[in-house]
């Protein structure tokens, strides 16, 4: 072995080639490690179930072969089995609105936590941070009881009637029951706070001296400087919301009209396990996020990196 390397590295050019290979080989091997299940999913979604299971025995699993068996049948079947377009729309709508609300309210609160001095500030920050360690699954059932008794403009049932006036409420079967409980998010507030802390305080002070009110300071001084952190929170919130709408909608959404795409996955486990269709549906779930990611890849990684620098 040593002999071969010595022989190969005898000339500078060969030496360079070996070094080149030595640098890229581990990178390529790792790339395969991170991609193979995704490749398998995408390729399998175009193959009949029998073929895809047969292919999982060798490298054909990752290749679009045999050409004559590839088709969109699995996708067609998936669209027949579940109202896929509606589910994607619901997921994107709920995700986008939640994300927008979080961006606004969390940045506003972080602004107050960093630049304003108010009674209860320190306690508020520690309580917010403490909520980071209560996983959703452990809050789910009390939360169910709560949203069922919250008022809403055109709620579907009467909560209480007093002196002939009834308060309507109950948040089941709506978009907002999937949105409002998820706006408050400790990580988002934390990231904004970390970022705002490093902004130059003098700018804020100068603006105040010039007579700007606090909202103007937020909107005209702090916002324009905060592009990267808004991108970070937006992207993290998007991934988290879009990818995890499962347990909660199963509990509070009782009509197909409001179901998100993750819940639809269960439509594919009635009676027979058609892996072809399942792969197609998994691809339908994942491709939008992957495209979103690939398009914004640079900003995406730069923004997540921002979480760490300020650590």
């Amino acid at each position: 072995m040593n002999g071969i390397i010595q022989a190969a590295t005898a000339t500078p050019k060969a030496r360079e080639a070996v070094l080149f290979a030595a640098r890229y080989l581990p990178l390529l091997a790792l790339a395969f490690v991170f991609l193979f299940p995704i490749l398998f999913m995408l390729m399998s979604s175009f193959k009949p179930t029998a073929t895809l299971l047969q292919h999982s025995n060798d490298f054909r699993a990752f290749l679009p072969v045999p050409l004559n068996e590839l088709s969109l049948d699995n996708y067609r079947e998936a669209f027949n089995r579940a109202p896929v377009r509606l589910f994607i729309f619901n997921s994107l709508l709920v995700t986008a609105i939640t994300m927008a609300c979080t961006l606004f309210l969390a940045s506003l609160a972080a602004f107050a936590l960093v630049f304003l001095n108010w009674w209860g500030r320190a306690v508020a920050l520690s309580v917010i941070l403490a909520t980071m360690i209560v996983p959703f699954e452990t809050r789910a059932i009390p939360l169910l009881l709560i949203v069922n008794n919250l008022p809403w403009f055109d709620g579907n049932r009467e909560l209480i009637t007093f002196a002939g006036v009834s308060l309507k409420g109950g948040w089941f079967n709506t978009y907002h029951v999937q949105i409002i409980p998820f706006i408050a998010d400790a990580l988002s507030v934390f990231l904004f706070v970390q970022y705002f802390k490093d902004l130059p305080k003098d700018l804020v002070a100068a603006a105040r001296v010039d007579g700007a009110n606090w909202f103007q300071v937020y909107a005209r001084i702090v916002l324009p400087l905060s592009g990267p952190i808004f991108a970070t929170v937006a992207i993290l919130k998007f991934i988290e919301m879009y990818n995890n709408q499962f347990i909660w909608p199963n509990m509070v959404v009782q009509t197909e009209q409001y179901r998100p795409i993750m819940v639809g996955l269960q439509y594919f486990f009635q009676l027979n396990t058609a892996w072809g269709e399942i792969m197609a549906y998994l691809s339908i779930i994942s491709v939008p996020v992957m495209i979103f990611y690939l398009l914004l890849q640079r900003a995406f990684i730069a923004s997540i990196a921002a979480t760490g620098v300020k650590g």
């Binding site: 309210l105 304003l116 001095n117 108010w118 917010i128 809050r139």
Partner: peptide, 16 residues
Amino acid sequence: GWIFAGPILLLFSVFM
């Protein structure tokens, strides 16, 4: 301070 942080603190209180 309370006007700015209030809305999200309310959400934290009710849902967390």
